[in-house]
């Protein structure tokens, strides 16, 4: 009897070990150790071939060189702008899906909104390039309508980058918003209306507080994805894109200056993490709940 329990305990321990092994291997070999290594890399400076000393030189370069922090700030501000625009566009759509559409219409509209995101970002960006470039569809249409004399270049502007980023991010905003709006009880809105509230007051006092978790989740994910985007800014912004991920790529792959690239990577990671933390604090939510929502 005693032997049987001992075997059972041993079995349980073996199972636990077998289940823990892949998880630990994944998290330590691919996430924790690589990031520690990246941190080490960013805090050193090559003094001779294959000889390094610990230093803050990489971070000093970032602050000393206006181009670098300029691009960094620009990326942050444009990402915040793209997040706000995405929220503005996605909210009425989510509202229609969750509250206005009747029966199957809501579900259908929801699926229709998801379809473009089954297609690769590369394909969607190709579509925008064909639409917007000087020889593209929209400039030709503008000439045809007599609005411009000759074709205008609509690519390579900051506004173009924003359009592309908002487009790519919509899904990640609509899904959590629909989730949080669906759980809002209509009778609350009706009660507020009966008590004489206008539409704006209802939105501010009932809808937004109720949807706050969804709004936060959507904004966090969209901001993070936008900040880390590479494809959309470089293709739609061309040489003017000046996106920070592009600087990381240049340092790492083109110039082979891994120390500098690692420092840039850490700065981007710090900004992204700070925004996630800030968003969570602002709405008083737990990280794990937000991640499960999206």
């Amino acid at each position: 009897m005693l032997e049987a329990t001992a075997t059972a305990a041993w079995h349980r321990r073996l199972m636990l070990g077998l289940l823990l092994a892949p998880a630990l291997l994944w998290l330590f070999a691919l996430i924790v150790l690589p990031h520690l290594d990246l941190a080490l890399l960013s805090f050193r400076e090559p003094v001779a071939p294959r000889k390094y000393v610990p230093s803050l030189a990489q971070y000093r370069t970032f602050f000393a060189e206006p181009l670098y922090w300029h691009v960094f700030m620009r990326t942050a501000i444009l990402s915040a702008l793209a997040t706000a625009l995405t929220l503005l566009i996605a909210f009425p759509v989510a509202w229609t899906i969750a509250k206005l559409a009747r029966g199957r219409m809501g579900a259908l509209l929801f699926v229709v909104c998801l379809i473009p995101f089954w297609v690769s970002e590369t394909v969607r960006t190709l579509g925008w390039m064909i639409l917007l470039r000087e020889s593209g569809v929209l400039p030709a249409l503008l000439v045809r309508l007599g609005l411009t004399n000759g074709p205008v270049e609509l690519l390579y502007h900051d506004a173009t980058i924003l359009v592309g980023l908002v487009y790519t991010s919509l899904l990640f905003m609509v899904v959590p918003l629909v989730g949080s709006l669906e759980s809002l009880d209509n009778s609350l809105i009706e009660a507020a209306y009966d008590l004489g509230s206008g539409g704006f007051a209802i939105l501010r006092k009932i809808v937004i507080p109720h949807a706050a978790p969804g709004i936060t989740a959507g904004c966090i994910v969209v901001f993070m994805l936008t900040l880390g985007n590479y494809l959309t800014p470089t293709l739609l912004g061309g040489k003017n894109s000046l996106w920070f991920t592009e600087q990381i790529y240049t340092q790492f792959i083109t110039r082979f200056n891994w120390e500098q690239g690692a420092a840039f990577g850490f700065l981007l990671l710090a900004l992204s993490t700070a925004m996630v933390w800030f968003g969570l604090k602002l709405s008083g939510q737990r990280f794990s709940d937000v991640m499960r929502r999206t």
Partner: peptide
């Protein structure tokens, strides 16, 4: 891993 930008996962 879900909140680390893909580019940084790549370089690390």
């Amino acid at each position: 891993p879900l909140v680390i930008p893909g580019v940084i996962l790549g370089i690390s």
